[in-house]
């Protein structure tokens, strides 16, 4: 996935879309105030400059789907593991809730169900049947909408063809009004996402930790922006 920070307006449509797509519980005001809100993707806000010349920068942060993820080996029950396709899988049924993965995650993109989830009416009527609902006591996190990836692959297999670039879109990518996010297969060097990931504007979050994140951020700062800018 590639996220263009220069295009992000901080509208948080991705956050809402993610909640709707992935059956993420709304924990309510009280719990949110106690820092227990679960947003698989969040828009981080940072301020640049001194008042009154302040600029706000927005940075949507989903799970970075690290290539060498710190969250995976620390899980004692293989709830957190690396799938063949390179995603960080989270198997809810295996999770016993040690929360070790969340501590090991440098991006804080793992979320714990402190209580059994509830949905305010009428949100309960729009639960996505393709996504399992999580119970109290387990971890959950962004899956890159694995249900959409699987559905796309099944569709392509049924039509006896390969998945086309851009055919599969996670909910956040689909909902972004400024098209700041691009999703694609990084193992295909010709995909749009691969192309953008090679851009001069590309950076990766906390790259220095050696986690090999699969989310690439594009932002200004390079003086020789190429045609991808």
């Amino acid at each position: 996935m590639v996220i263009d920070l220069d295009r992000c307006t901080g509208c948080e449509a991705c956050v809402v879309a993610c909640h709707a797509e992935n059956n993420i519980a709304t924990v309510g005001e009280d719990q949110a105030a106690r820092a227990r809100a679960m947003h698989w993707i969040r828009v981080e806000r940072y301020y640049e400059g001194e008042f009154p010349n302040v600029k706000t920068k927005f940075m949507p942060v989903p799970c970075q789907q690290c290539g060498a993820a710190p969250c995976e080996p620390v899980c004692p029950t293989f709830a957190s593991y690396h799938t063949i396709e390179g995603l960080n899988g989270q198997v809810y049924n295996r999770c016993i809730g040690t929360r070790y993965c969340a501590n090991a995650c440098p991006y804080n993109t793992r979320f714990f169900n402190f209580y059994n989830p509830v949905w305010d009416k009428p949100l309960d009527l729009q639960l996505n049947p393709d996504v399992s609902v999580r119970s109290e006591g387990i971890m959950e996190k962004c899956t890159f909408c694995v249900q959409r990836i699987k559905a796309g692959e099944v569709q392509a297999a049924a039509e006896k063809r390969l998945v086309k670039d851009g055919e599969i879109q996670p909910a956040c990518v689909q909902s972004c009004p400024t098209q700041a996010m691009v999703f694609g297969d990084l193992s295909d060097p010709e995909s749009e996402a691969s192309r953008l990931a090679r851009s001069n504007r590309a950076t990766r979050l906390l790259d220095e930790l050696g986690t090999f994140p699969k989310v690439t951020y594009l932002q200004r700062g390079s003086w020789h922006d190429n045609e991808n800018a």
Binding site: A35, R36, G97, R99, A102, F112, E136
Partner: peptide, 15 residues
């Protein structure tokens, strides 16, 4: 019975 919500734990202080 109630869930770990009865503790003071939160994100990011999971322990």
């Amino acid at each position: 019975y109630a869930g770990l919500g009865v503790t003071g734990l939160n994100r990011p202080v999971f322990w």
